[in-house]
């Protein structure tokens, strides 16, 4: 049984709409969209949808009480709620450097959670480390 779906690609700001013909889990044809990344996105979106997740975790000793963090790679969509709950329990201490892993292999997905910015002790604000 062939099935028609429309998927909006979120890979880049263009937001192309792609029409997909598939049979079960097998993608038969993808129409529309301007680039290869879009084709890949659609296949992944249908098989195992993932999203980049950005949130915050508590941190002590810095200019702000929260440190912005993000997933090193797109995270399984169905497990985002669990990830957020997990990150709520975390509390870090400064200093933290941009790109530093604040949680390794989150929920066993193999995906690390990274600091989005550097946060130093209160006095040194914002400086490069």
């Amino acid at each position: 049984m062939e099935e028609e779906t429309r998927v909006i690609c979120i890979t880049c700001p263009k937001g192309c709409a792609l029409d997909v013909t598939r049979e079960g889990a097998t993608v038969l044809e993808i129409r529309g969209g301007g680039c290869k990344r879009g084709q890949e996105y659609v296949k992944a979106e249908l098989a195992d949808p993932r999203r980049m997740v950005a949130t915050t975790v508590r941190i002590r000793g810095g200019l702000h009480p929260l440190l912005p963090v993000y997933t090193a790679a797109p995270f399984p969509k169905g497990r985002i709620a669990d990830l957020l709950a997990e990150l709520r329990t975390l509390e870090l201490r400064v200093p933290v450097k941009m790109g530093e892993v604040v949680l390794k292999n989150a929920l066993g997905t193999g995906i690390d959670i990274l600091a989005s910015r550097t946060m130093t002790r209160l006095k040194e604000k914002n400086g490069e480390m």
């Binding site: 880049c12 700001p13 980049m52 950005a54 949130t55 912005p68 993000y70 941009m98 989005s116 910015r117």
Partner: peptide, 19 residues
């Protein structure tokens, strides 16, 4: 702006705002 999506066009990276 802690969400991702910054730098896609020029840096070809998907960064959060603070990064």
């Amino acid at each position: 702006c802690i969400h991702n999506g910054f730098g896609l066009e020029v840096l070809k990276k998907d960064l959060p705002g603070p990064a």
